[in-house]
């Protein structure tokens, strides 16, 4: 059974006296294998949260179909969401209630026992803060409480929107470990995050979207390899003259750091570069090849929109 299947999803927001805003524009997305961590990346405003809301039946698509755990959404939400734990954007709780009370209010809807709530709070490291009002929680603690709420149903699928938001480095490592453990235990985790490094470490598959469309999907290795263009980095005394010579020879060359020029894409034979520069009376001090990181791939796929990329 396909965990998530989205075909041709369109979502247009209509606002009184405003032009409609197209948030998602024909998005196709499939998460097939259970027991995976799937990363969902995209700049701010790319349509991630709208897609997640459509997936969970919180908003109705303008066009397209959404199937969650084999159920059409939003009509099959009651059956599907029984098996889904979700955290959308920031955790939403009553600030004047304690963490435990907030979870108890949710758990009561499904008759979840107090002991189970205490166990979940301990699992996310909030046992000591269970009786503290949520307004006194730090952002990281609220995030943990949000994750606790998603785990309370013992779901097959977890949909987490920026779960590491506000966590300290130790918390991020702990969260990463928890997501991996959940996937290893057979649960599917669909996680959106701006922490590209974290996503790279924990995800089996990635989906990158921009302007409401999927621009890349597959495993982290596949995406980086597919977009990988190695670059050559030259160290030279006169970078300006070197750039002129290389551009005249048909290469894309730009100044990088002091006395460094980057050539993209790298030529198949680096000796071509040494010959062009030598012919111009320029001599290299150094030449090396560099691959591209997921962050660079992400930036190139999303036209450098930095919304979700850490500064």
């Amino acid at each position: 059974m396909t965990v998530v299947e989205i075909v041709g999803l369109h979502k247009e927001y209509k606002r009184f006296r405003h032009e409609p805003t197209l948030a998602v524009d024909g998005l196709d997305l499939t998460v097939g294998e259970p027991g995976q961590v799937v990363g969902f990346l995209g700049p701010n405003g790319s349509g991630k949260t709208t897609t997640i809301r459509c997936l969970l039946g919180l908003i109705r698509p303008t066009a397209g179909t959404v199937r969650l755990l084999g159920h059409d959404m939003p009509h099959g939400a009651a059956a599907a969401l029984d098996r889904v734990g979700a955290l959308v954007e920031n955790p939403k709780f009553f600030e004047e209630f304690t963490g435990q009370r907030n979870l108890r209010l949710l758990g009561r809807i499904r008759g979840i026992k107090t002991q189970a709530i205490e166990d979940i709070l301990a699992q996310v490291g909030l046992a000591d803060a269970a009786d503290m009002k949520v307004r006194k929680y730090s952002l990281g603690m609220k995030q943990r409480l949000g994750v606790a709420a998603t785990l309370l149903k013992d779901p097959e699928l977890l949909v987490l929107d920026e779960p590491a938001n506000g966590l300290d480095p130790a918390g991020i490592v702990e969260m990463r470990r928890m997501l991996r453990d959940l996937a290893d235990g057979g649960k599917t985790v669909f996680v959106s995050s701006h922490q590209l490094g974290e996503i790279e470490q924990v995800c089996d598959d990635l989906v990158i979207i921009d302007h409401g469309k999927v621009v890349a999907s597959g495993s982290v290795g596949q995406i980086v390899d597919a977009s990988a263009m190695e670059t050559s980095v030259i160290t030279i005394d006169d970078p300006t003259a070197a750039i002129e010579a290389l551009v005249a020879a048909g290469y894309e060359a730009q100044a990088k750091a002091k006395n460094q020029v980057v050539v993209e894409p790298a030529p198949e034979n680096p000796a071509d570069l040494t010959k062009i520069l030598a012919d111009a009376g320029l001599y290299l001090r150094g030449l090396r090849s560099e691959g591209r990181s997921l962050e660079e791939v992400f930036l190139s796929l999303t036209e450098g929109r930095s919304g979700d990329v850490p500064s």
């Binding site: 039946g57 009651a78 969401l81 009553f94 809807i109 149903k153």
Partner: peptide, 18 residues
């Protein structure tokens, strides 16, 4: 109003979508 202000209505609908 508080359900919309705090966004908790979303949380409730994730637990009881009917």
């Amino acid at each position: 109003g508080a359900e919309y202000r705090f966004g908790t209505i979303e949380q409730v609908l994730l637990w009881e979508p009917r």
